[in-house]
């Protein structure tokens, strides 16, 4: 094939059941570089693709701990070290009072870690991605379910993979260009 490079083959399904089934069969057939696309999160799909990514909770925990330390350090350093001032007869190190800003910065940093971590690990924002080259792919955000086996998969062979996907009972199988 001349022309644009092939990114992979994409099969379109009508319902989540078929997609989960197809994904499982593709994994059993030994494909490893594949992804499934759906208009809403499907838990069975995560299992079918054997996704085990525990990084995000760790990132959020890290963000929260950092936020808490920063918040307390801010209160402590400004009130005890840099600008000690007696207010209302309270000690410089007014630990109970410092808890409130500390709590808020903990939440703030953890929330930023959750959002930026999710986007970062997902590689978003990503203005261009080959799957969008398929004109039917716009339906992935509406009512259709897609399975894409990438050309860089070691077991990928255009004709054989095409035949394999056709057997899974999709509505249509199509080439996706890079």
């Amino acid at each position: 094939m001349s022309g644009p490079k092939l990114y992979g083959l994409m099969a379109e399904f009508e319902n989540p059941q078929d997609l989960v089934e197809a994904t499982r069969r593709a994994r059993e057939a030994g494909f490893t570089r594949l992804d499934a696309y759906s208009p809403y999160p499907i838990e069975a799909l995560t299992e079918a693709l054997d996704i085990h990514d525990r990084k995000l909770p760790a990132v959020v925990l890290g963000g929260g701990i950092l936020g808490g330390l920063c918040g307390y350090a801010l209160c402590y350093w400004t009130t005890v070290v840099n600008y000690p001032l007696v207010v209302g007869g309270k000690p410089y190190h007014s630990a109970p009072a410092f808890i409130v800003p500390t709590f808020e910065t903990t939440i703030l940093f953890a929330a930023f870690a959750a959002v930026l971590g999710m986007l970062g690990l997902n590689g978003l924002p990503m203005p261009y991605h080959p799957v969008f080259n398929s004109p039917r792919f716009a339906l992935a955000s509406r009512d259709r379910f897609f399975l894409c086996i990438e050309a860089r998969d070691p077991r990928f062979d255009h004709d054989e993979t095409w035949a394999f996907l056709t057997k899974l009972g999709p509505r249509v199988v199509m080439d996706v260009e890079e």
Binding site: D35, P39, F132, S141
Partner: peptide, 14 residues
């Protein structure tokens, strides 16, 4: 942001 409904993305998103 280029959201494409990938199962891997959904998993982290959830």
């Amino acid at each position: 942001m280029g959201w494409r409904g990938s199962a891997r993305h959904w998993s982290r998103y959830e």
